[in-house]
């Protein structure tokens, strides 16, 4: 069972327990009321029980144990996240700014960005371990592809944030800014295409090299974005966001 399933079913179980206790109280009270002695003026006063010390100890201790267990599990999951410092096959520097993304493939010297109303297209080779270095210069953003099962903020002045994902399955996804960043926060999205290695290499060959990767200076040549590649977005049907969740389509690192 995956960690999130433990938490989810644990949550469902606890909620169900409380719902059951409430329902039990209601039902027993109604039944007792039907049976009670109407002639006794104090007949509808139940026993005024207030303390059951042993019971209190039990219902304090058990949640405590559960919480300790969940905490251990959570820390295990977090360590899996943090220890996945495997050498990446691909390093992508990400800059978020109001309200666009730029991606710089470090080793390939390729930079992609978007334009007004045009989402940037990010290509990743299936099977690769990819490291995203996250930076922002203006306000705080947050890089989130739901299938990554992880998001991180891009914070001005913080250059150490990164996430590592392993791409396991081809497909087309949508990445978003998850941290509210101003007027057009909603439009700050990008397309992510996970493609086989050879298609990725071809795409890289068709990209112009050495474009400047500096926020602001990039906007002028966005119009020249290459359309010669065989992997233009139109050749890939956008997949609805969602069905792949939980199976780590572009593998979350856990």
């Amino acid at each position: 069972m995956k960690q999130w399933q433990v938490f989810l079913w644990g949550a469902v179980g606890v909620a169900a327990l409380i719902w059951f206790l409430v329902a039990y109280a209601i039902v027993t009270s109604i039944r007792r009321r039907r049976a009670e002695d109407r002639d006794d003026p104090d007949g509808d006063i139940p026993p005024q029980t207030q303390y059951r010390t042993k019971l209190e100890i039990v219902y304090t201790t058990i949640p405590l144990l559960i919480v300790v267990g969940l905490f251990a599990l959570a820390m295990y999951g977090t360590n899996v996240l943090d220890n996945s410092q495997a050498t990446p096959d691909l390093t992508i520097n990400v800059v978020g700014f109001q309200w666009q993304w730029q991606f710089n493939y470090e080793e390939q010297d390729v930079t992609v960005g978007g334009a007004a109303g045009v989402m940037p297209d990010l290509y990743l080779p299936v099977g690769a371990t990819v490291r995203f270095n996250l930076r922002a210069d203006d306000v705080i953003h947050s890089l989130w592809v739901p299938e990554f099962l992880e998001k991180r903020d891009l914070i001005p002045g913080v250059d150490t944030n990164s996430i590592i994902v392993k791409v396991t399955k081809p497909g087309s996804y949508v990445g978003r800014c998850a941290e509210y960043c101003g007027l057009n926060h909603t439009e700050m999205k990008f397309n992510l295409y996970a493609v086989p290695r050879d298609q990725f290499d071809e795409w890289v060959r068709n990209q112009p090299k050495g474009r400047p990767f500096v926020q602001g200076s990039f906007t002028t040549d966005l119009g020249t974005r290459s359309t010669t590649t065989t992997l233009t977005p139109t050749t890939l049907e956008p997949a609805p966001v969602g069905p792949g969740r939980g199976v780590a389509t572009t593998g979350g690192s856990r």
Binding site: F7, V14, L70, A74, T78, L81, P146, E150, G252
Partner: peptide, 19 residues
């Protein structure tokens, strides 16, 4: 309350926060 415990776990929260 129970979704709060879910969100307290960093590995779940990193997916669910800000959603």
């Amino acid at each position: 309350g129970v979704t709060g415990v879910m969100l307290a776990s960093p590995s779940l929260d990193l997916q669910l926060t800000d959603t």
